[in-house]
């Protein structure tokens, strides 16, 4: 039971324009390491004012002997942390709201490209022509994340599942569902 403002959130089991017999196979998000990397970036960024403080303390100590200097530095540091906080949430929002859903009939692509840019697209599984999984780089190989490219018939753009866990396994699932969908839709 959802209360208050949380009742507006999307249920994990809901499918937009659900067809008869359609079930969710998977919801896919980026690999946990992508979120962890974001966290690390903000930990490093949060240390910058401290580094600046020590730099000024040793190189321009006169600033700290004057009340005006201290106040200006404090205001600038507070503004810096305000922007860092909101930038961290924006980074989280744009990463967390990228969700790829595989159902028994379709692939639903929800991508938050920025705070003011969101794309929702879907592709029928029987229209999938090619599925390619790719892992590039040492970290991606060690941690097991990568991209899955889905090429559809007659579509210029490819669907890309970016930086997801187990890309080869996901590609296999997509290929199996694609075969099944093609058998069920032989004329299409």
């Amino acid at each position: 039971m959802r209360a208050g403002i949380f009742r507006f959130m999307i249920s994990k089991t809901s499918i937009p324009n659900r067809q008869i017999g359609e079930e969710i196979v998977l919801h896919i998000r980026r690999h946990w390491f992508i979120f962890f990397r974001l966290f690390l970036v903000f930990v490093v960024l949060s240390l910058i004012p401290a580094l600046v403080y020590y730099f000024l303390l040793f190189n321009l100590p006169i600033i700290f002997k004057n009340q005006i200097g201290v106040v200006i530095l404090a205001v600038l540091a507070l503004i810096y942390y305000l922007f860092m906080l909101v930038y961290a949430l924006t980074a989280w929002t744009t990463t967390y709201l990228d969700v790829w859903t595989i159902t028994t009939f379709r692939i639903i692509n929800r991508e938050q490209e920025g705070l003011f840019s969101r794309t929702v697209a879907e592709l029928d599984l029987y229209r999938v022509q090619d599925v390619t999984a790719e892992q590039k780089g040492v970290l991606a190989t060690l941690l097991g994340y990568g991209d899955v490219y889905i090429q559809s018939a007659g579509e210029k753009e490819r669907f890309v599942f970016e930086q997801i866990s187990n890309p080869y396994g996901i590609a296999k699932i997509l290929q199996k569902l694609n075969e099944k969908a093609r058998k069920e839709n032989p004329g299409l």
């Binding site: 949430l89 709201l97 705070l115």
Partner: peptide, 19 residues
């Protein structure tokens, strides 16, 4: 600016995020 952007972010998470 912080409050405005925070509001946009929270709105997005509430409107488009899974429960």
């Amino acid at each position: 600016v912080f409050l405005l952007y925070s509001l946009f972010n929270v709105y997005h998470l509430l409107r488009f995020g899974f429960f």
